[in-house]
Amino acid sequence: MTLTRDGGSLFSANMAGTLRLIVYLAIASVLMVLDHRGHWMGKVRYGAAIVVEPLYHLAGLPASGFRAARVAFADRRKLTEENKQLRVDLLLANARLNHMAAVSRQNKRLKKLLDTRRQLGMNVQLARVIDIDLGAFSHRLTLNTGAHQGVKVGQVVIDAHGIMGQVTQVLPGTCTVMLITDPDHAIPVTDTRTGLRTVAHGSHESGQLSLTTIPVSADVRVGDKLVSSGLGGRFPPGFPVATITHVEPQLSGMFLTARAKPSADMQRADEVLLLRDLAPPVGPPAPASVDGPPRALAPDAVGSSSTSARRSR
């Protein structure tokens, strides 16, 4: 009884329900087709942003809350461990950075040296300084090359900026270099500005050269560049040696005395070049030859301009 009545009411309701279903399905299909063609979805969402956006935030709340809680209640020990690990990592990274900086500096220096070598077109040999003895009475270096590497007494040692000295003693694996600043050392030089020839001695003041035999009438000024003159056949001509820093008359009044600062970087160089087997010069050499380290490496621009002035003359 109830079933039949139920069925009867269901039937009439079913017809209406099915009809409504069909209508709704049609509407939905039309909407979908229109959206698929016209991509309305984004526009509708954009228009409903006021309602939709807070919903997104609301739905995202549990996740963000969970994340915040995990940070807040993170294990203290774990954090400490992490901190320690990070500290160690930082130390390691810093050490590595320092090492890298040192390597980068060395690389730059070596490149400069190689540049010199290429521009000279000379037969040179790279050597490392292994021991420095810059006392008051002996200005010497020890290099890590010796007789086994073909080093001979008398070879000239230069760095990227100028002449450093000459080899005075050769051992099988090492050699000793007497620097031009050694009081026992003398090097014949030429003033690039005037062509004046003179001799530069090592000085008792460390790191200085002294020129004691300049005639009073000679034109020597502070800032003059001295290059090797090649006289005596020991040093090749044209290498920068020093820059005049101080000129004064001697007490006797017969000569001028000048002090000069070596062009080579005596204090800092730890890689140097050994010049090999230079033929002894024949006859008086030109006061200033075109040979020499690149002008870009000259300590200051004034000197190089005076050099070029001399050359153009």
């Binding site: 399905l25 939905a28 299909s29 909407l31 979908m32 959206d35 698929h36």
Partner: peptide, 8 residues
């Protein structure tokens, strides 16, 4: 994805 999809 589509407007009307979940409605249907």
């Amino acid at each position: 994805i589509l407007l009307g999809e979940q409605a249907l």
